[in-house]
C-alpha cells in the first residue's frame, strides 16, 4: 500500500509541482504575493475541458489553457503596476472575476471529461504504437515526471538569462535594477505572465488527469503552492536556482504525500484537507524561526558554560 501511496503522491506532486513552480516565480523571485493562481488554475482546467468537449485536440486545448493563464497574469500585473493596486488586492480582483469567467467558459459548474480524448490517451496510443509493451497504467507517472522536470529546467534556464537576472533583481532590490535601466513594471508583468501560464498549464493537466474540470477546484491552490515552495526551501535551501526549483518539486511531492498519509490512515476526512494544508504551511513557515531559536538557545548555553 505504501508503494502505491508513494507512486500516487509522486504523480500528483509532479503535476501540481508545475503550478508550484509558477508560485515560486512570483513568491520567491518577485516577492509578489499573487493570489491570481486560485483563479488561473481552474481557468486552465475550464479552458482545456471546454475545448476538449468541443472537439478540439487535447494538445491545442492545453496550449490554449496556458495562453489564457498568461493573460490572467498580465491583467494582475497591469492592475498592480499601472493602476497602482496592491499586489494582494490585484490578485484577489483577478481571481474573483475569473470565478465568473470560468463558469462562463464551461457554461456550468462542472465539465466531465469521461470518454473524451486527453493528452494522456493521445500519448498512450502514440507510445503503444512504437512500444506495445508500454505499461499504460504508468502513463501519468512517466509523463508527469518528464514534463515537470522539463518545465523545471526551462525555468532554471530562464532565470539564468539576462531577463531572468532582471526579474530576480526586481524582487530583491527594485531600486538597484531600475538604476541599471530595467523597467521594473515590465519585469513584474513578465514574471506574473510566466507564473500564471504555468499555473493554468498545471490546471489543464490536472483536469485531464482527474477527468473533470470544476469551478471550485481552484480553492486553496495558492496555499498548496506556497506549501510546496516553503517545504522545498526549508529542506533543500536556496543556494542556487537549480536547487531551489528542485526543492519546489520535492516540496510538492512531500505535500501530496503527507496529505495521502493523513487520508489513508483516516486521521482526517477529505473535508478537513484545507485546514490540514493551512497547518502544514504554518509549520513550514515557522520552521526557520524555530530552528533559529533553538540554535540561539544552544549557543547561549555554550557561552555560559565556557565563561
Amino acid at each position: 500500500m505504501l508503494q502505491n501511496l508513494l507512486l500516487n503522491s509522486l504523480e500528483q506532486g509532479m503535476v501540481y509541482g508545475i503550478m508550484a513552480l509558477g508560485v515560486y516565480i512570483t513568491f520567491k523571485i518577485l516577492k509578489f504575493s499573487d493570489l491570481t493562481v486560485d483563479g488561473s488554475f481552474p481557468l486552465g482546467a475550464a479552458i482545456a475541458a471546454a475545448l476538449i468537449v468541443g472537439g478540439y485536440h487535447p494538445f491545442f486545448a492545453t496550449l490554449a489553457a496556458l495562453l489564457a493563464g498568461a493573460l490572467a497574469g498580465c491583467i494582475t500585473g497591469i492592475l498592480n503596476t499601472k493602476a497602482g493596486i496592491s499586489d494582494l488586492l490585484s490578485g484577489i480582483l483577478t481571481m474573483t472575476s475569473l470565478y465568473s469567467i470560468n463558469l462562463r467558459i464551461m457554461g456550468r459548474p462542472n465539465t466531465p471529461l469521461l470518454n473524451q480524448p486527453t493528452i494522456y490517451s493521445v500519448i498512450d496510443t502514440f507510445v503503444k504504437g512504437i512500444w506495445p509493451a508500454f505499461p499504460s497504467k504508468h502513463v501519468y507517472l512517466i509523463f508527469f515526471i518528464i514534463f515537470a522536470l522539463l518545465i523545471k529546467f526551462i525555468v532554471d534556464a530562464f532565470l539564468k538569462t539576462q531577463m531572468g537576472f532582471a526579474l530576480r533583481a526586481t524582487g530583491d532590490n527594485p531600486q538597484m535594477i531600475r538604476s541599471q535601466g530595467v523597467n521594473t513594471d515590465l519585469a513584474k508583468i513578465i514574471g506574473l505572465v510566466i507564473s500564471n501560464s504555468l499555473v493554468a498549464l498545471s490546471g489543464a493537466l490536472v483536469a485531464q488527469y482527474l477527468g473533470f474540470a470544476d469551478a471550485g477546484m481552484g480553492v486553496g491552490t495558492i496555499v498548496a503552492g506556497l506549501a510546496s515552495v516553503i517545504i522545498g526551501d526549508t529542506l533543500l535551501g536556496g543556494r542556487t536556482v537549480f536547487i531551489s526549483t528542485l526543492g519546489v518539486l520535492f516540496g510538492s511531492f512531500l505535500y501530496r504525500f503527507s496529505i495521502s498519509l493523513v487520508l489513508s490512515f483516516r486521521l482526517a476526512q477529505a473535508s478537513d484537507l484545507k485546514l490540514f494544508t493551512a497547518i502544514v504551511v504554518v509549520i513550514a513557515l515557522t520552521a526557520p524561526q524555530i530552528k533559529q531559536a533553538l540554535k540561539l538557545r544552544i549557543k547561549g548555553c555554550d557561552s555560559y558554560g565556557n565563561s
Partner: peptide, 27 residues
C-alpha cells in the same frame, strides 16, 4: 546599489549588459 541575494558576477552581468539587460541571452 546591489542585489544582495545574487552573486557578484550576476550583479556585474546586469551592469555589463546595460542597456540590453532584458534579453533572453545568457547572463
Amino acid at each position: 546599489g546591489t542585489s544582495p541575494s545574487m552573486t557578484i558576477e550576476e550583479n556585474l552581468s546586469m551592469a555589463y549588459a546595460r542597456p540590453n539587460n532584458m534579453t533572453l541571452c545568457w547572463g
